[in-house]
Design a protein around this nucleic acid. Structure first.
Lengths: 248, 248
DNA sequence: CTTGACCCCGCCCCAGGGGCAGGGTCCGAC
DNA sequence: GTCGGACCCTGCCCCTGGGGCGGGGTCAAG
């Protein structure tokens, strides 16, 4: 009987902890071995074999209750289950690889937070010289839009891309961006308001039937983000709605 | 404020469950947003961005407590941590692949339970025509040996391989194997005992200085496994120790 | 004006162990 | 022959990362 294993040796051999073995006993996965005169558990090689099977399945993410069933089941059941578990494992590996890619994106950029199409748009805006503040606001707008309606967001995105091919729109976009920091009594504001109004008049929204406004305009004029406005923009809004006066 | 997100929309956008979001609030990973008039949480796009960061790190297996620290830390710390986490992820992928290989071994064979060298030995024994019962016993013996002393097991394995090149030893091994099932009064037993004794006399153990017996002999004669003996083997043992009588 | 989908909070549950307390035991060195 | 360190025993509570459920309030579309 000198060849029998103590729990620690068994644990080392199988590459698990002593605690785990006792846990498997509790769950009925591994039969309790006999005890020696001082109450120590004494294991045989068969326990080691069984334990390695348990460990292998458990490491593959199989719940212990199922491990128990599988090891007590007939070989065909086990074979089928192994195929399925292997499939699962393959999926998990693929998932981890995707996670790795996303992790790399975490270091910077917006690609993680918006769809690739929106990310491309944001990159184009950046190339155009749009401020980071505006790009941030733009990004947040698209996030919100997408949560409200992914399909509409896709449509609006297409429209926005078309608009960006219009030099006048691009100029207006950049000017509005710059105007953010102007003093509210800046003399350029009325002219900008006029240009914006005539552009809007010449480009009616195509989404007339839908209860949504043109996102380009939304972007230009109706920012609901808290703290996303400025004195100059507020004045601009008043100028554009024709109220040159105090408040609306 | 119509652009603000309910918890469900936010959850969908980020690809997590509502429960998880509330969990992140509890752990202080995501600040609680304001509530609307009926007590519903209302989220902004910034929450979405933060949540996606949390989700990405959490999916990479980073403990939530550390996620919190990382997202509040400076960019260099984050960058360094990401590198480390990525490394970790790589390791985990490799580990999963290994688990997949082991899972495949689970369907049969002994490669999962013993070292490759021992597995090779067992395969050779099988080729030699050794019974499954003996191979099983052999395997169990090697498991036990390895747990007792991996280095000694390796030495013994080398010796065993050498012995297996000796035709006389192979013949004895097979005969002992076959003798297991013989009746205890089988007339071939005394002859086998004699051959074994002379072989042993001609091949003294090389491990004389160590307090261990030659494993080949151990394999042949001294099986301590419960139920691993037979009437014929017991008679053989008595014959070899010279006690032709009743009991030893 | 109902009906289904959504939200609130709170409480208990799971796996798969880890950690610690408070004790007994074994074995090799001295 | 005894001492120290490594090992073993049981039992209990703790952790992560949520899931499930119950009992209730709310919102929006038909």
């Amino acid at each position: 009987m000198s060849g029998m294993l103590t729990i620690g040796r068994l644990a080392d051999y199988a590459g698990v902890t002593v605690k785990a073995i006792r846990h498997y006993h509790e769950r009925g996965l591994l039969t309790e071995p006999g005890r020696d005169s001082s109450g120590y558990r004494r294991y045989t090689a068969e326990h080691a074999v069984r334990l390695i099977k348990i460990r292998t399945l458990a490491r593959a993410g199989v719940p212990l209750a199922r491990v128990k069933d599988l090891l007590d089941a007939d070989p065909e059941t086990l074979t089928a289950a192994i195929a399925e578990i292997d499939h699962d494992l393959e999926d998990r590996i693929a998932q981890l690889r995707r996670t790795r890619d996303q992790l790399a994106q975490l270091r910077g950029g917006d690609r993680l937070f918006v769809s690739p199409e929106v990310a491309d748009l944001l990159d184009d805006l950046r190339d155009l010289g749009v401020s980071e503040r505006a790009i941030q606001a733009e990004r947040d707008g698209w996030i919100l839009m997408r949560t409200a309606s992914p399909e509409d967001a896709a449509l609006w995105l297409t429209e926005k891309r078309e608009l960006m091919t219009d030099p006048e729109f691009r100029a207006l976009y950049l000017d509005h961006d710059a105007a953010y920091d102007w003093p509210p009594d800046d003399p350029r504001l009325p002219g900008l308001a006029d240009r914006t109004r005539s552009w809007l008049a010449a480009h009616p929204s195509r989404f007339g039937t839908r209860p949504v406004r043109n996102p380009a305009i939304a972007r230009l004029a109706a920012r609901s983000q808290p703290g996303a406005s400025s004195p100059a923009w507020e004045r601009l809004a008043r100028l554009m709605t024709g109220q040159a006066g105090v408040k609306g």
